[in-house]
Design a binder for these strands. Structure first.
Length: 806
RNA sequence: GCCAAAGUGGCGGAACUGGUAGACGCGCUGGACUCAAAAUCCAGUGGGUGCAAACUCGUGUGGGUUCGAGUCCCACCUUUGGUACCA
């Protein structure tokens, strides 16, 4: 009897659904384990083998943990608001809801045919009013807490298309010949910067890949520096700059402010005014990309004004340049061209003086010297000297001096910016805010505030979302007067910021989440997803979670205790899978050819989970062979009768078996599925070789394999007479004494080169190992005529003789 | 440029805290079964020299530490991911 994967997989998937096999356990006395996938955006192109990698990994862990006695929460849902469905609607008039529904049902089918053991009764969808009611609720809380505010923000505005573009879209539109300008629009902004310090600090306690933590640290970009006031010569105000190198103050030879700096125009002298105005105007036309992107050539204009260097008393010219960012620090810098490459470049271009104040190994007129591992020079006046001091000491003395003179203040700065939270789109959560005629704003308390039906999905000519065209929805009145609704919607990130909480209590109509369930299930014990979310999604989620923590909605400071990034699966040509390359391997295709168990095993066998690796359809044949070998542990070839025996396995087989239990258990815990599978292959090969079809051994194989290949093992488990699902069976335990070798092969080396091996008992004492080694024929000839300088014995491993010619 | 990770057979990859490099799988070669094929099974499979026993080289490159290095240290090269004037 041959294994028919197609019929078997269908049979068990139907039975699992019918019997609710994977319903989440509710007995709170049992230990819990929460395994979460990054839920997908249900796109129209369906799932390919790359998408299934992470889901397979979490499913293996889920099934494994269940067998180890945990209540496991393993849910799935849909991040279903988003641009593609809306673009499709603009083109075809199809309602995004319909597109989304169709895509979801195709995604769900594929996931089900992989045999994933999700608790489908907890499925959530971010576009479901019952869900986004709470997304809106969180937004209102953010607003109450002063963490959501409106501000004029520059957006990428395309004149011809009358549309706001996302940063990612700008390049492509420019290439098509459109013009994109920066235009200020009133936007909702979330004050994530208020949580910068906590977001940074709490990273330390997380079991996350080091590179992801590092990326978040870089993104938050904490820096310690000093704000220094420079007196302006012909103005009563000061010019405040931010620097992380106060130790180089003596080397500051000019100042630069950004074109948007409030003082920019005021500082222009009569003579310079025309040039300054022209420069500011020109900067406005440039997009963010043009200003910060590839073009590195420095531009700038002199204001005509001067400021006094508090350390040297010198008058420094004040320049305007767009390389200085308005939104970082004070929007103004002191330039120390000798020790900062940007300042150096600028100074060279405009002929400004360069003065060495940190001892440099070369002439700073020729090249910049930026390293901090040196000491200050030329840095003293009547009141202070930092000459000879290394960076840290020089920094401190200078900062203290400036503070004592009231000219400066130590400051911490973050690179992190507040989060622009509004989109001028239809297919997103409406922001539940009412704007009244008197200019006040109130919350829409009747949540959820749902989307109205619209005729057309195009943004309006003013750049507002299509919602601005729907009078009935837009305008209303209540006891506070006439109001106009907020027409911006939330970005796609919003729904994914807190979905992991809703899975715990998906149907709660009264609360976002029930506190006792929250306390039982949080945190997420294992969160698996792609590295592309290393910063944004994971940072935004952590931010919302901390806000909910402050609100008392959740009991943990962090949402995801352990994070794991699966590596991408490349196409067979070693390139990223993409439609345009034509190298996409669709999930449904391999599923129908090889079956779910083979696909699951192969995806995991390909290599380490975290690694990027190419798909190779040929390789899956090996897995199919392995599965039929497993099948033949129970059914002999061409036989319908069982070959299983009730005898105890032989000693050698038993040892092999216990070793496999240990290895597979350890590797599964560590998500090292490739080596776990390899170990199972070794065991199965061994059983066939030994002709051992003992029930004890075969059932062990089935149990070990069941999280990986649930269908075939379920079928054979039933064949062997079990009435309960193998998914509920207890994980096998190993006997440590059985999992140990009693005979080991000892390697014998002479001068580190392998010259022979022999078998010895595992606990053989050193002396005896040496004796035996010296007797080996293949070793003796290398010892002849030599004097042994040193004898190294590693029990259970090897013997090495260091020799010298006599 | 900066930050992070990684370079091992024809290919994917394995190798615990330094201890027999190449597990497992793909592919390939030969054989068995068959009228034949598929499937399956058995044997072999890093390079070089050799009839053989055996010897020798070999984990990106060059040095170093060590009885012993894929693994540790230094320098360099390449690839991938992140970031991009953050003062």
């Amino acid at each position: 009897m041959r294994y028919d994967f197609s019929a078997t997989e269908k049979k068990w998937q139907a039975r699992w659904a019918e019997q609710n096999t994977f319903a989440t356990g509710t007995d709170q006395n049992k230990p819990k384990y929460y395994v979460l996938d990054m839920f997908p955006y249900p796109s129209g192109s369906g799932l390919h083998v790359g998408h299934l990698e992470g889901y397979t990994a979490t499913d293996i862990i889920t099934r494994y943990k269940r067998c180890r006695g945990f209540n496991v929460l393993h849910p799935m849902g849909w991040d279903a608001f988003g641009l593609p469905a809306e673009q499709f609607a603009i083109k075809t008039g199809t309602h995004p809801r319909l597109t989304t529904e169709i895509n979801i049902s195709s995604f769900r089918d594929t996931l089900k045919s992989m045999g994933f053991s999700y608790d489908w009764s907890r499925e959530i969808n971010t576009t479901d009013p019952g869900y986004f009611k709470w997304t809106q609720w969180i937004f209102l809380k953010l607003h109450e807490m002063g963490l959501a505010y409106m501000s004029e923000i520059d957006v990428n505005w395309c004149e011809e298309l009358k549309v706001v573009l996302a940063n990612e879209e700008v390049d492509e539109k420019l290439a098509d010949g459109y013009t994109v300008v920066r235009k200020p629009l009133r936007q909702w902004v979330l004050k994530i910067t208020a949580y910068a310090e906590r977001l940074l600090e709490d990273l330390d306690g997380l079991d996350w890949p080091e590179n992801v933590k590092q990326m978040q640290r870089n993104w938050i970009g904490r820096s310690e520096g000093v704000e220094i006031d420079f007196e302006l010569r012909c103005h009563r105000t000061n010019l405040r700059v931010y620097t992380t190198r106060p130790d180089t103050l003596f080397g500051a030879t000019y100042l630069v402010i950004s074109p948007e700096h409030p003082m920019a125009e005021k500082l222009a002298t009569a003579q310079q005014l025309t040039a300054v105005k022209a420069y500011i105007e020109q900067a406005k036309l440039k997009t963010e990309l043009e200003r910060t992107g590839l073009q590195k050539d420095k531009t700038g204009v002199f204001t005509g004004s001067y400021a006094i260097n508090p350390a040297t008393g010198e008058a420094l010219p004040v320049w305007i340049s767009d390389f200085v960012l308005t939104s970082y620090g004070t929007g103004a810098i002191m330039s120390v061209p000798a020790h900062d490459s940007r300042d150096w470049e600028f100074a060279k271009k405009f002929g400004l003086p360069i003065r060495e104040v940190v001892k440099s190994p070369h002439d700073v007129q020729e090249a910049v010297f930026e390293a901090k591992e040196s000491v200050s020079v030329n840095s003293s006046n009547d009141e202070i000297s930092i000459d000879g001091l290394p960076f840290k000491a020089a920094f401190d003395r200078m900062a203290t001096w400036l503070e004592s003179k009231g000219k400066g203040k130590r400051t911490v700065n973050y690179r992190l910016r507040d989060w622009i939270f509004s989109r001028q789109r239809y297919w997103g959560e409406p922001i539940p805010i009412k704007h009244y005629e008197d200019g006040t704003m109130r919350h829409e308390t009747n949540l959820p505030l749902t989307l109205p039906e619209v005729e057309a999905y195009h943004p309006t000519s003013t750049g507002e979302s299509p919602l601005a065209n729907i009078e009935e929805w837009l305008i209303g009145s209540d006891e506070h007067g006439r109001y106009r609704r907020e027409t911006n919607t939330m970005p796609q990130w919003a729904g994914s910021c807190w979905y992991y909480l809703r899975f715990i209590d998906p149907a709660n109509a009264e609360k976002l989440i029930d506190p006792s369930r929250e306390r039982y299930w949080m945190n997420v014990d294992l969160y698996i997803g792609g590295a592309e979310h290393a910063v944004l999604h994971l940072l935004y989620s952590r931010f919302w979670h901390k806000v909910l923590y402050d609100l008392g909605v959740v009991s943990t400071k962090e949402p995801f205790q352990r994070l794991f990034n699966q590596g991408m699966i490349l196409g067979e040509d070693n390139e990223k899978m993409s439609k345009s390359r034509g190298n996409v391997i669709p999930a449904d295709l391999v599923l129908s050819t090889y079956g779910a168990d083979a696909v699951r095993l192969y995806e995991m066998f390909l290599g380490p989970l975290e690694q990027v690796k190419p798909w190779n359809t040929n390789g899956i044949e090996g897995i199919s062979r392995f599965l039929s070998k497993v099948w033949r542990l129970v059914y002999a070839e061409n036989e319908t009768s069982l070959r299983i025996t009730e005898e105890k396995p032989g000693h050698a087989v038993l040892k092999r078996m216990h070793k496999a239990i240990r290895k597979v258990s350890e590797d599964t815990e560590l998500l090292k599925f490739n080596t776990a599978i390899s170990e199972m292959m070794v065991l199965v090969n061994e059983l066939h070789k030994a002709g051992c079809y003992s029930r004890e051994a075969v059932e062990t194989v089935l149990l070990l394999l069941s999280p990986f290949a649930p269908h075939i093992t379920e079928e054979l488990w039933q064949t062997l007479g079990h009435e309960q699902s193998i998914s509920g069976a207890a994980w096998p335990l190993f006997d440590p004494s059985m999992a140990k070798d009693d005979v080991v092969t000892i390697a014998v080396q002479v001068n580190g080169k392998l010259r022979g091996t022999y078998d010895a008992p595992a606990d053989c004492p050193k002396e005896q190992l040496l004796e035996e080694a010296k007797k080996l024929e293949s070793v003796v000839k290398f010892l002849e005529g030599q004097s042994i300088v040193k004898e190294i014995v590693v029990p259970g491993k090897l013997v090495n003789f260091a020799v010298k010619p006599l």
